[in-house]
């Protein structure tokens, strides 16, 4: 009986002490790899800091850039941004319904949006984030997809949207240029 009580108490103590000792996630190594040239482009539109309310929720790693880049500028000339770290601000117009592993950020121009992809499980965006405003930091990647690759990607997105049953591959044109902001940190409010 004494053994049982001692075991139970010590296990409980380990659980509680570990939980209480946890510190917030440390700043990432992104500081070291941040592209300082991102701030010198003419497409940088705003200082991001002051517009963010204190109630904003942080996802993943700490943002390192201070100035935002317009989505329209990235989409207009994606190759010039390829491999560069940028900070983008806009409304979250879509959230991956299956895993919360990507969001689409509405652009500063109509009909434009940029997909912000995070590693599965590292950040999980809740569906309730849809419609909120996001500051997302990441690296721009640009891929040329053949029609077959574009169909495969669209099929995967349809699966994540839960619209696979109505997916029509004949509507997918190709080849396409796929522009993605791959990131590890975001601030949502």
């Amino acid at each position: 009986m004494r053994v049982t009580v001692r075991l139970t108490l010590s296990l409980a103590a380990v659980v509680v002490s570990t939980a209480c000792a946890k510190k917030p996630a440390a700043p990432s190594a992104q500081v070291a790899v941040a592209d300082s040239t991102a701030g010198t482009t003419g497409a940088v539109v705003a200082a991001a800091g002051p517009a963010v309310p204190a109630s904003a929720k942080e996802y993943g790693k700490v943002l390192t850039l201070k100035e935002t880049t317009a989505v329209s500028a990235i989409l207009k000339d994606p190759r010039s941004y390829e491999g560069r770290r940028v900070l983008v601000q806009g409304p979250i117009v879509e959230v991956c319904a299956e895993r919360g592993c990507w969001i689409r950020i509405g652009g500063d121009q109509e009909f434009e949006a940029l997909r912000f992809k995070v590693q599965d499980g590292v950040i999980v965006f809740p569906l309730s984030a849809k419609g909120k405003t996001v500051l997302a930091e990441g690296v721009i990647s640009v891929k040329n997809l053949t029609r077959a690759q574009a169909i495969a990607q669209a099929r995967e997105v349809a699966k994540e949207r839960g619209t696979l049953a109505t997916f029509d591959s004949t509507k997918i044109a190709g080849p396409v240029t796929d522009i993605v902001l791959t990131g590890e940190g975001a601030r949502v409010w």
């Binding site: 409304p91 979250i92 117009v93 509405g106 109509e110 009909f111 949006a113 419609g131 909120k132 405003t133």
Partner: peptide, 9 residues
């Protein structure tokens, strides 16, 4: 609304 968006015309 919190935000609005036009995905297409």
């Amino acid at each position: 609304p919190m935000n609005s968006y036009r995905p297409d015309p």
